[in-house]
Structure formats: structure tokens, C-alpha cells
Amino acid sequence: MLRSHTCGELRIDHVNQQVTLTGWVQRVRDKGSLLWIDLRDRYGITQLFLEEGKSDPALLQTARTLGREFVIKVEGIVAERHSKNANIPTGDIEIKVSSLEILNESKTPPFTIEDETDGGDDLRMKYRYIDLRRNVVRESLQLRHKMAQQTRTYLDSQYFIEVETPVLIKSTPEGARDFVVPSRMNQGEFYALPQSPQTFKQLLMVSGFDRYYQIVKCFRDEDLRADRQPEFTQIDCEMSFVEQEDILNMFEGLIKHVFKTVKGIELSDFPRMTYDEAMQTYGSDKPDLRFGMKFVELNELVKGKGFKVFDDAELVVGICATGAAEYTRKQLDELTEFVKRPQIGATGLVYARYNADGTI
């Protein structure tokens, strides 16, 4: 191994130990007689320290050539910091460098490797391998890994079996268009990428595998939406010899397990709502209950009053937006444009102000 420890591992208990670290240069602070280097890997940041008169002059000269994102290997002694940094786990120590080797030089990155970076979306996507070094991106990948790990742990404990199903398949009727792949062996014929493993999991049920799951890639050639892209991953499950209550309890248990083990959050029993209730009070089969703005039926109040839009409508409902009576005309126009977006699909917005003094 090129390193003895990671950059997020060393603590005050390691003082006076000889260590070897590798990583990327996050920043260099040169104060003339004193020089500090923040060395980063995916585990954290460790501060390196060099001092004129005590460190080898050749070492200082090499250190002053370092730029951001240089990959280096250092050896040194762990020392207690004089000015500790409580914001990072390694903030009590630093490394007094005795050896420094540049493993790979780097051009100046096109944006800073920080949580709040100065790079726009297009620039970060162009240099994705650099963007992946940022904490917020890495933490998202680690969260995804932990969720997949705990999903498998839970489903394994419930006697599910994980089965990988084919990716190159025959086209099957689904809710979107298929992505197709030409066959080299059979000219003029095509494979389809699966929109879901539906056919295969049904075969597994018929074959006697009564509990199946797979964390599977699916492909759908359809327009982008906020919750859907052409390639996505889903937790795909199938069960035999069960009723509705068994399914609800099984996957409520899965969500509770993932939140508890990954985020340390204990969830209470989930409230349940029928489809009819959801559509009647929220107009959606996946309502966001955080806002509490239920639909209120207004047919008796507004029909037959000579307003054609309401008179011709089968159902007229309204939302009570508490506090919105004070909105300016500009804010109301912005709301109108918001509901006209394709994701919502409304043609406009009708509003009435109910003021604090009771006037409308």
C-alpha cells in the first residue's frame, strides 16, 4: 500500500506516529517561513506542515510548486496542532512532513472543489470526474450505496431472493417507447432494453420463487420529467400468495428499516389514504401532505352565477392558501405562470382574496 492511513483517519491518539498519506492538494497556504497544505481524499482532509529552518530546503521548494489537485504522497510525524480546527475530524493534528513525492501534476481545475463551487451545471458535467471529488456529490453516492446495502439486508431477512434478469430482451408492451439495440447476428432485427423486469419476475413467480427482488436499471424512451429520466434504477419486487395488507406492511417495513439504519430516523406507522380520497382532496394519487392545502368543493357557491368557465365545469374546487391575501399582483402573476407549466398543465389561475377584515 502507498499509504498507511487515510486523510480522515488520524486523531490525537496518533501523535508522534510515523505515517504515510496520499491524496489531492486541496489548497496551499504559504506565509513565507511557514507553509501549510490541506491534503484531501474521499475520507477527509489532513493538514500538512513545513517550516523554514526545520524542514529540508529542497522539500520546501517542492512544496511551493504544488497546485490545486496535484496528487502527492507524503511521509511525516503526526503532531498536535497549536490552533485546532473543530470543524473537521482531523482538526486536532497535523503532519510534520519529512518526505514529499508528486505522483501526478494537475492543470488548474476549471472550478473550485468545494461544497459551494463556482462552476455552473454545464461546466461540472463536462468535467464530471472533477465534480465527483466534491463532498456533496460523493456523499450522495455514499448515501445511495448505503440505501442499496440496507435494502438488500432487509429483503434478505424477509426471505426474498435477488435475481438478475436479462437486459437485452424482446420488446414488450409498456407505458413508453423502447430503446432498441440492433442485433449483429440477425440483420434487421433488434433487442429492446427493458422498461421493467415485469415478464421475468412473473416467470419467477410461476417457477415457485415466491419472493423476488432486484435493484435494477430500467430504460424508457420518453420525455424528461422531474421524477423520471431515460435511464433510472428501481427496487423491483414481486410476491406470491399475499394480499394487499401483506404488501403494504412489507414495504412500509422496508422504508422504516432504511431510514433507521441509514439516517438514524425512527418512523412511526404510515398514514393511509384511499385513491378516491387522494384524488378528491389533492387531485393527485401521490399528494405532498406537507402543505396541507386540500381541495374544497365550490360547486354550490359558484355554479349558476353567469361565469361560463365555472358553469360549464363538471367540478369546481379551490385551495385555501393561508397568508396569500397579501400577495402583490406580480406575485399572483408568477403563480399563474407556475401552474401553466407543462408539469402542472393548468390553463390559468382564478383567485379571490379573503382579507383580514372579512372582505372579499
Rank of each mutant, 00 (worst) to 15 (best):
S284F: 03
I265E: 13
M273R: 02
G264C: 09
T261H: 15
Y275R: 08
S268R: 11
G253K: 03
Q280R: 14
D285G: 06
Y275S: 08
S268M: 10
I255S: 12
K263S: 13
F270H: 04
G253M: 06
R290W: 07
K260R: 15
E277A: 12
D269F: 13
F251P: 01
E245M: 04
D285P: 01
Y275P: 08
E252I: 01
T261V: 14
V258W: 04
P287Q: 00
E252A: 07
E245K: 08
F270T: 08
P287R: 02
F259D: 08
E243S: 03
Q280G: 10
L267W: 14
H257R: 05
L267F: 14
T261W: 10
F251W: 05
D285A: 06
L248G: 02
K263D: 13
E266N: 14
L254K: 02
Q280E: 15
S268E: 15
S284C: 07
L254Q: 07
L267G: 12
K256P: 01
L254W: 06
M273D: 00
F270V: 08
P287D: 01
E266A: 13
L289K: 06
A278K: 04
I247P: 00
S284Q: 00
K256Q: 15
V258G: 06
T274P: 05
A278G: 00
G264R: 08
M273H: 00
E243R: 05
G264I: 10
D285N: 09
D288C: 00
H257T: 04
R272T: 12
V262Y: 14
T261S: 15
E245A: 05
E266Q: 14
E252P: 04
P271V: 13
T274Q: 03
M250Y: 00
Y275F: 15
H257I: 02
L289T: 08
Y282V: 00
P287S: 01
S268K: 12
F270W: 10
Y282G: 06
E252L: 07
I247R: 02
T281E: 08
S268V: 10
E245W: 01
N249R: 07
